[in-house]
């Protein structure tokens, strides 16, 4: 489904825009971002998107909402972050739990 055209477009587009956004910060007048409302929205933007990415990464297959082994992985990750586990532990715990459920149910 994923064609090389798509993946190369993503690599090129993400690379170019990521650098542009970084460099822009050094070139635009400071006052552009001093508006408190703009500051709040820019602060909340990654939070809303990360919330969405957790949801889609766990519960979505193509265009439907599903419940599969990834949900068990996320539940395990949730316990790990709540217990303040370091990043590698969070990811590993999620991966192992999900893989176990995958093999138990298939």
């Amino acid at each position: 489904m994923t064609t090389p055209t798509t993946t190369w477009a993503v690599v090129g587009g993400t690379a170019a825009l990521s650098f542009t956004l970084k460099y822009l910060g050094y070139r635009v007048p400071q006052r552009w971002f001093s508006n408190p409302r703009a500051q709040r929205i820019l602060h909340l933007l990654p939070i809303a998107l990360l919330g969405a990415l957790v949801a889609v990464g766990t519960f979505v297959a193509s265009t439907s909402v599903v419940l599969d082994q990834r949900a068990a992985g996320l539940a395990a990750a949730l316990v790990a972050v709540w217990r303040r586990a370091p990043f590698p532990v969070v990811v590993l715990v999620a991966a192992v739990t999900s893989a176990l459920c995958y093999h138990l149910t298939s």
Partner: peptide, 19 residues
Amino acid sequence: AVAAATMLGLRNTLYGVRL
């Protein structure tokens, strides 16, 4: 994909403004 990446990268612009 690029739109989602761009919105998450916007905070780097703010970092540049600070630095």
